[in-house]
Design a protein around this nucleic acid. Structure first.
Lengths: 232, 232
DNA sequence: TAATGAAAAGGACATATGTCCCAAAAAGGA
DNA sequence: TCCTTTTTGGGACATATGTCCTTTTCATTA
């Protein structure tokens, strides 16, 4: 993570997302601007959280670890999103693992500051409420989805989500195989089984696989294979 | 549903749960007091919601329908709980089906009133936020659970939850078999499979089944069979 | 280059669960 | 009471997925 000292950029972003409308005193809020590289971990489950974060650029993956050391993909988030709402309100440690998918820009605002100056500001509270309610609604949907979706559905959806975030969409898209194990974990399945699914999609000419890449041959069919599942 | 006209009881409940601390003007809030009978449906998915509800007595089941007409048990709630938060904040139709497990008492407060007088009240907003955050945290946990729990786990847990809410816990507990289909739906499985699971638990002498009842023979083993799953 | 060891892929089998359908049982009606 | 219809239970099989272990591939070192 790299702190960026660029008050002009910060100001621009604040304008863009109407951040100032959320707070009482618009100027001199102790914001930090943070940049993360692809795959960099932003928050680890269990750590104490110090700042509320606003995702303003890039795409972020939210996962949750389960007993066996595996992890489960909860959702992807995009700008403008709030990270740390539960932790701020309920005073609990970080609930999920948060990781940058591509290059990301986040704004941070210390909990201490919020608790001192903004915690009773209705505008701020409304913003929080709306975001948390949205997440709850999404999570409920996801619960349902988990009962309907096969690994193939989820993998197809995951592939599309991850790849469409890549900038180099020139002619066929690459994806290293080195992280197939990680993908299996994210989808809540085993390496063995994901391999089976990849094999099956390859047979159907929906994706193509060689040494170090997976390439999508047929987006339409991949979309069908996802069966409408979306990690929005 | 029966409206109860008993301002004394209402007052007592308001005191008990410190409801007045949540609102600005403590007196003359247009509360209604509503009573539901066991298994009565409180809210149907998709309907327009008019009042925020507070569960103050009894136990309520929250479910969500999925494509195939099946439904999925989301959670049980107990006093003091808020029903309708997402609907109030996001202005969406009722998201889940809400049904009384036993005799329930709820307080209602019209959305109109809230939007007019309380929507910017920080105390009220805090209460809402806390409850929604709690639900979100629970839902995330449940998502994980759904990936770990077998139907046997869920059924064992469900049985214990439902039965412990019954008052007549004298010597062995009864449960009509007529609703096994409904239970299967609630657990997100088929009648056929739930039958298998019941059969298996019967074989192990954990439960006993005759014409019209299921009786728990061994709570400890049933608890083990639930594998720690709790629909709190 | 050949031997060795680590990483990746895949075969074989087990389990949980869904689907389909038939048989047993219960409920009604003549 | 006996026959018909409906309801309930369960057999048989299919599919998705997990576990375990062997084979294959690939890189590394003598």
């Amino acid at each position: 993570m790299k702190y960026i000292q660029d008050s002009e950029l910060l100001e621009k972003i604040i304008q863009q997302y109407h951040v100032e409308e959320m707070f009482d005193q618009t100027k001199q809020l102790p914001f930090t601007l943070q940049q993360y590289t692809p795959d960099e971990i932003i928050l680890l489950e269990g750590m104490e959280m110090q700042s509320l974060l606003f995702l303003v650029e890039g795409k972020v993956r939210i996962t949750s670890s389960i007993a066996t050391g595996r992890s489960l993909l909860l959702r992807f988030i995009h700008p403008f999103s709030i990270i740390g709402d539960i932790e701020l309100i309920r005073d609990v440690p970080v609930q999920s693992q948060v990781q940058a998918v591509n290059e990301c820009l986040l704004i941070g605002l210390p909990f201490d500051y919020i608790k001192q100056y903004e915690i009773d500001n209705p505008k701020f509270l409304h913003t929080l409420l709306e975001h948390v309610c949205y997440k709850l609604q999404t999570c409920t949907t996801a619960s349902r989805v988990n009962l309907l979706a096969s690994v193939e559905n989820k993998f197809a959806s995951y592939l599309m989500s991850t790849i469409s975030a890549e900038p180099n969409n020139n002619f066929g898209i690459e994806l290293t195989t080195s992280n197939i194990k990680e993908m299996a974990n994210l989808l809540g399945t085993t390496y063995r089984h994901l391999n089976r699914v990849i094999h099956s999609l390859t047979q159907k000419n929906i994706i193509e696989r060689d040494k170090n890449s997976i390439r999508i041959l047929n987006w339409d069919d991949l979309d069908k294979a996802s069966n409408g599942i979306r990690y929005k």
